[in-house]
Computed example of a mutant assay.
Amino acid sequence: MELTVGELARRSGLTVRTLHHYDAIGLLVPSLRSAAGYRLYDRANIERLHRIQALRQLGLSLADIGTALSGPQAPLTEVIERQMAQLDHEITKATRLRQQLGLLHAQLASGQSPDLADWLDTLELMTMFENYFSTEEIKQLPLLHDAATRAEWSAMVALVQAAMERGATPGAPEAQVLALRWMRTLYRDTGGNPDFLVRLNRMHDNEPGSWDALGVSAPMRRFIEEAFVEGRLAIYQRYLKPDEFAFMREHYGATFAAWPPLLAALRKAMVEGVAPDDPRALELGRQWSALFRAYAGDDPATHERIRQAHANEPDLTDSSWSDEALTAYVRTILAALQATPRTH
């Protein structure tokens, strides 16, 4: 198929002036000329125009598009897939905005005076969450949809802030109780899914304003994490010998951030039905064992005392993002790991 500049303009929704400009800057040069000297665009030109428009929709300048198209080019199917993904993202954002506007309209129509600041904070949070969670996953996060949940978090944040302002240390019983409450609430609001926790942590690390709507600062997050660690150490101390506990105290805190990603990977393997003796599962088992031994040491007697603590102390196992099913799966992996011959 060969099209004149006017025909291509009508079919593409662009203006003739735009196509002439693309020709002048060498971005889209007609491949053919008619006997009368008119520009004619063939199939290859139309495909290139699609790439140009796709890249324009992704925000690239004409100069950047020219550079991008001068090198090896991705298949057109891949370009279209990127366009579709971008459109899906924009549709999701527009849908959420439409829902929020509907709620605002309903409040105004009923004579209520909505809290615009809270509404805007929620909308800002949603925008950030969309970069880390799918549409379906966002529906599972009550912080974005449930006013009672937001109020609960705000009250808890206020208590933690007050404790910090009073000079409470992470080792204080008050701080440990608040940290345990915080983690239990976070566990509830992530549905016990460690992958959600990992992505929330990544969002909070990458988006400085992600917790601003609730008044959570980076120092507050550190305070909670340190208090949570101190609370768990206080429990372990009741079961361990002094030298065992001294070793754990020195190393336990350093492993805190490493557990959620490992739990998320193990949960994914379990859901996908990866067999315990599969090389992927065995590698996760090795990581689990290495992380555990990093603070528990190598003495089997110490390990048994730690297991006893977990069996007797609900505060060590509740809201740990490792439910009974995942714990059982890990046990089968560790058993398979022990039965696997060592290679040198």
Rank of each mutant, 00 (worst) to 15 (best):
E2R: 14
L8I: 01
R11F: 10
R11E: 15
R11L: 15
G13E: 09
V16W: 07
T18R: 00
L19M: 07
L19W: 06
L19Q: 05
H20R: 15
Y22M: 05
A24T: 15
I25H: 04
G26V: 05
V29Q: 07
S31Y: 06
R33H: 06
A36F: 07
Y41H: 07
Y41C: 06
E47V: 14
R48P: 12
A54E: 06
A54T: 10
L55Q: 10
S70M: 12
Q73R: 12
A74M: 13
A74H: 09
A74C: 11
Q83Y: 00
M84F: 11
Q86M: 15
A94L: 10
R96H: 10
R96Q: 14
L101N: 04
Q107A: 11
G111Y: 03
D115G: 06
L116E: 06
E130T: 09
F133P: 04
E136F: 12
I138V: 14
Q140K: 10
L141M: 07
P142D: 07
L143D: 07
A151T: 13
E152C: 13
M156R: 11
M156L: 15
L159W: 12
L159D: 14
L159Q: 15
R166P: 06
R166T: 07
P170I: 01
A172C: 08
L178C: 05
A179S: 03
A179W: 00
L180P: 06
R184Y: 08
T185R: 07
Y187L: 14
R188N: 09
D189E: 12
N193K: 08
R199G: 04
L200G: 12
N206H: 09
P208L: 04
G209P: 09
G209F: 07
S210M: 05
W211F: 15
W211H: 14
A213H: 10
L214P: 08
G215C: 04
G215S: 04
R222Y: 11
F223N: 02
F223A: 01
I224M: 13
I224L: 12
E225N: 14
V229D: 15
Y236W: 11
E244N: 09
E244L: 12
F245N: 05
T255C: 05
A257H: 10
A258F: 13
W259P: 11
W259F: 13
P260R: 03
V274G: 02
P276D: 00
P276W: 00
D278Y: 05
D278M: 01
L282T: 01
G285A: 02
W288A: 05
A290Q: 11
A290M: 05
L291V: 03
R293W: 06
A296S: 04
G297W: 01
D298F: 12
R305W: 02
I306H: 08
Q308C: 12
A309I: 00
L316N: 03
S320Q: 06
W321P: 02
E324R: 11
L326I: 00
T327P: 12
Y329K: 00
I333F: 02
A336L: 01
A336K: 01
A339T: 05
H344I: 15
